[in-house]
């Protein structure tokens, strides 16, 4: 009597299920799957996506996103989404661009995908205007996403526009509580960044100090803010003409400086930004 060998069934239910994507898109997906371990499949992709979303404090957005696009996103999207985030963070530009292309053309646009793409351009390609455009898309997709405003502040600082950096950071501060127990550190960093932006825009030292003090209220051990505060001169508030020490300094230029270098410009998405002092 012949012995029957029970063969293991391959394909269905394995870690690499059949994809509905074809041609070049399938090849991109396969390359993405080779880059990730464990591989998302039909059973696990949602759990994996939400796990990563929790780490980034975007679970509220992602729950709504998955609910809204339930018929359009599945394990293929999940695999690409997770892999793209990691690949972009590691600066693998070509692979990340390839995955982004597929995500953007085949699936609904996603906040986190746009944020990853923005950081990729800021940190690895030096295309700062493209980075700005991805952040703008992210802000449209989720107007309450703290990270998009926080990162926009950093980007505008790099682009040499401190007023915009300040305004974006201001919006981020109002949304920072979505980071839960760790939000106090983020809030302190945002206040510090705002103080730096004010220093860059030659605002009065009294205003700069107010933001540094706010940073230290949120996180008393924040050494960087304390050091910056300690380095600022004392006499600014006593200035009888109400002008900043920095402006007085620039008045000493041999040329005649009639106007401050900058004007404060309101942020584009500042309509409901009334909970924090500007």
């Amino acid at each position: 009597m012949a012995i029957k060998v029970k063969r293991k069934r391959r394909g269905r239910g394995s870690s690499a299920p059949q994809s509905t994507l074809t041609g070049e898109a399938e090849e991109v997906l396969n390359r993405a799957l080779e880059r990730i371990q464990p591989r998302p499949d039909r059973k696990t992709w949602k759990l994996m996506v939400m796990g990563l979303a929790r780490q980034r404090a975007i679970e509220t957005y992602m729950e709504e996103f998955l609910e809204e696009h339930v018929e359009k996103v599945g394990w293929e999207w999940g695999a690409l989404w997770i892999t793209h985030i990691h690949i972009a963070e590691h600066g693998l530009v070509d692979e990340a661009m390839e995955m982004y292309q597929l995500l953007a053309e085949t699936f609904p646009l996603n906040y986190m995908t746009e944020m990853s793409q923005s950081r990729l351009h800021r940190d690895f390609t030096g295309e700062y205007y493209v980075a700005r455009d991805h952040i703008n898309v992210a802000q449209t997709l989720w107007p309450d996403g703290c990270e998009a405003f926080y990162q926009a502040g950093i980007l505008y600082d790099l682009m040499g526009v401190p007023e915009y950096a300040f305004a974006m950071a201001d919006r981020a501060y109002g949304l920072a509580d979505q980071f839960g127990d760790t939000s106090y550190k983020l809030k302190a960093r945002i206040s510090f960044n705002q103080a730096v932006a004010m220093w860059q825009a030659a605002r009065p030292y009294g205003d700069i100090k107010a933001y540094l003090r706010r940073a230290l209220e949120d996180w008393p051990e924040y050494e960087r803010a304390q050091n910056f505060l300690d380095s600022l001169p004392e006499d600014d508030e006593a200035d009888p003409r109400g002008r900043s020490a920095m402006q007085r300094f620039t008045d000493d230029i041999r040329r005649n400086m009639q106007q401050p270098s900058y004007q404060i410009i309101e942020p584009p998405q500042a309509e409901d930004n009334d909970d924090e002092e500007g």
């Binding site: 030096g126 790099l158 860059q200 000493d252």
Partner: peptide, 30 residues
């Protein structure tokens, strides 16, 4: 890791430099 990363490091320095007083004779100011 990439030319863009080097550029970003250079750019951070450029911004810091530009907001500080110029280190040139006869000129005072940022």
């Amino acid at each position: 890791p990439a030319p863009g990363a080097a550029n970003t490091e250079w750019l951070s320095r450029l911004r810091l430099w530009s907001y500080n007083p110029a280190q040139v004779q006869n000129y005072r100011g940022r």
